[in-house]
């Protein structure tokens, strides 16, 4: 699935990321921490887009759920221990994904996309307007599970590597092969006896809980959550990350997240219209690198 060249590149990249805190540079730790969270988030969506063939615009909702749940547990119950809050936040995101996925998967194709978008928007407006969750101002996370920046950074790094390894193994397992079969020809899979909707729902819930993990780490890193996390803009951005990196490759979306973070950071220094730069890069990648950034690593083989 991954060429040896790409494997070497990824291993070196992961080691380089692990070495960053040694520099003691707070800015880069925050910046790369954010980029790695984006990588986890994008890989979790790649499970749906790249492997199960489901384009979901609800993915930001599960990121937001993970983040808001941490803020809620911390503020209301003074809960911060990671061993307690992390499973609760991931389970909460998974429960949200179970409900939204169960309802959305009754529709297919473009209707599925629209239903997932509608759910995200509902949650966004609910959090934006309901007084209990800080409204449009959002909430501070009073007690962070990992307030030490170095600990927070390494938690993100470990999560990134673990999620990558987990998804890689999952996709090689019979479950992953069934998902790939469904992406190829869902109707045929059903007539072979697979309850395809249940498989897709399982993938949706799994991806949702991993998005919740990314949201949890984000809330811990910044100590702050707001309703924009739920916006369709975030769902669109993570989808763009997956396409930019190369859907169906797993490592591609992680690289895409890093690239997007760098583009944003450099772009902001150059011009206030930095989104135009990102737009141009996305168009260029879609036109000239149909397999995304990950395709570059494989290019020499072809």
């Amino acid at each position: 699935m991954i060429s040896s060249r790409a494997r070497l590149f990824l291993a070196l990249g992961a080691l380089a990321l692990a070495a960053v805190p040694a520099s003691g540079d707070r800015f880069w730790m925050q910046f790369l921490g954010k980029a790695m969270i984006g990588g986890i988030f994008a890989m979790s969506l790649d499970l749906l887009v790249g492997f199960a063939g489901l384009v979901s615009l609800a993915h930001a909702a599960f990121f937001g759920l993970g983040a808001y749940l941490l803020a809620g547990l911390s503020n209301r119950y003074q809960l911060a221990q990671m061993a307690l809050t992390l499973p609760i936040c991931m389970a909460g995101a998974a429960a949200g994904a179970l409900i939204i996925g169960w309802l959305s998967l009754r529709a297919a194709g473009v209707y599925f996309i629209m239903v997932t978008l509608a759910f995200t928007q509902m949650l966004y407006y609910f959090l934006n307007d309901a007084p209990w969750f800080g409204g449009s101002d959002g909430l501070y996370v009073a007690l962070r599970p990992l307030s030490n920046p170095i600990a927070a950074y390494y938690a993100i790094w470990i999560a990134l590597v673990a999620v990558f390894a987990f998804l890689l193994l999952l996709l090689r397992s019979p479950f992953g092969r069934v998902l790939i079969g469904i992406r190829g020809n869902e109707q045929r899979m059903r007539s072979l006896g697979f309850p395809t909707r249940q498989y897709l729902l399982a993938a949706f819930v799994l991806a949702g809980s991993l998005a919740g993990l990314a949201g949890y780490l984000d809330a811990n890193l910044y100590g702050f959550v707001n309703p924009a996390l739920f916006g369709w803009r975030e769902s669109g951005l993570v989808l763009m990350t997956v396409l930019l990196g190369g859907k169906g490759t797993l490592h591609g979306p992680a690289l895409g997240a890093l690239l997007l973070a760098l583009l944003q950071q450099q772009g902001e220094r150059l011009t206030e219209h930095w989104t135009a730069i990102i737009g141009a890069v996305v168009i260029a990648v879609v036109l000239f690198l149909p397999r995304g950034v990950a395709g570059l690593l494989e290019a020499r083989r072809a």
């Binding site: 019979p174 190829g184 020809n185 899979m189 072979l192 006896g193």
Partner: peptide, 20 residues
């Protein structure tokens, strides 16, 4: 109506796995 992108071995494996 086969899985165009999968190998023959994978196609029959998927079919067989539907009973597992």
């Amino acid at each position: 109506n086969v899985f165009a992108e999968l190998s023959c071995g994978e196609c029959v494996w998927l079919a067989s796995h539907s009973r597992a």
